[in-house]
């Protein structure tokens, strides 16, 4: 794995290069195709989709979207749900992480193990009783109802507990000598030291909330409460007879754009958060 230039010296280097380029083309082809379709009028696409390959192109579909699409409403919903969930997870996980890492209370270690067990419980396995519970509480089609299940995942607590444990105890003890209360130690001394973990957890949670399909599909059934992810799904159900291929693609590109732009700027952090979340 010597660092060398991508342009190969040997035959095998060239073969690797060709394979990577082919895979790269497969990677971008669907997006380029959708982009092409979105720049074509429906009349033209009805006749022949290979017209995508040549001019004329038009922004008509995007203009139609600006005046007549509920996509903006979905954006607002997604933003409220994702931000709410991110803030909630950061607060709950920081408090609980500090509690599990630093404080003693009856049954602490057993409770921690039980919380870790939650990592092995897939959402789909508890969906029926959870749905019933939210019906009884009248929380379906509310922002709180869309946010709450995201706050019950153990991952953040696990991550923050590990992080607090890695901070040397001498840091707390020094602060305690200065007569700081336990909460002050947590809030002023330790919490700022966990900033990298907060960033990882925050990005991970936001991305998951933004892209989640399962719970919003089941709980947010009112069209006014659609998130972007569910909203885009709702346009696909009547794929053939809906607004037209060009318009659908414009909507998909438009919905993908914010997250792709964020990705371009914060790629390093997003990759770290997603990989960290998996292992």
């Amino acid at each position: 794995m010597a660092a060398g230039s991508m342009v190969g010296r040997t035959l095998s280097d060239r073969l690797i290069l060709v394979a990577v380029i082919v895979l790269g083309i497969v990677m971008v082809a669907p997006i380029v195709w959708a982009l092409g379709l979105s720049l074509k009028t429906n009349a033209e696409l009805m006749v022949d989709t290979s017209s995508v390959l040549h001019a004329p192109y038009t922004l008509q579909n995007y203009w139609d979207l600006v005046i007549g699409s509920p996509v903006f409403r979905w954006f607002v919903n997604s933003m409220i749900v994702s931000l709410g969930m991110t803030i909630g997870v950061l607060v709950l996980s920081s408090l609980a992480g500090y509690g599990f890492a630093r404080l003693e209370f009856p049954g602490r270690d057993i409770i921690f193990v039980l919380v870790l067990f939650g990592l092995a419980v897939p959402e789909q396995a508890v969906i029926i009783p959870r749905h019933q519970l939210f019906s009884e509480l009248g929380l379906h089609n509310t922002y709180i109802g869309l946010i709450l299940p995201g706050l019950s995942t153990s991952f953040g607590v696990f991550l923050m507990t590990q992080y607090f444990r890695a901070i040397p105890r001498e840091v707390d003890e020094a602060a305690m000598l200065d007569n700081a209360t336990r909460f002050q130690v947590f809030w002023r001394v330790l919490l700022p030291m966990t900033l990298p973990a907060q960033a990882t957890l925050g990005i991970y949670t936001f991305l998951h909330a933004w892209n989640d399909y399962w719970w919003p599909l089941i709980s947010g059934t009112n069209a006014q409460m659609y998130t972007v992810t569910v909203g885009i799904a709702s346009t696909q159900i009547n794929f053939a007879e809906s607004a037209g291929l060009g318009f659908l693609m414009a909507q998909a590109i438009f919905a993908a754009l914010p997250i792709l732009i964020v990705y371009v700027f914060f790629q390093k952090y997003i990759v770290r958060a997603v990989s960290g979340g998996a292992t």
């Binding site: 669907p30 997006i31 892209n211 696909q236 990705y263």
Partner: peptide, 12 residues
Amino acid sequence: VLSVTIVTLLWR
């Protein structure tokens, strides 16, 4: 980083 609904729309 894309949601499942965008991915399926692209691939359909």
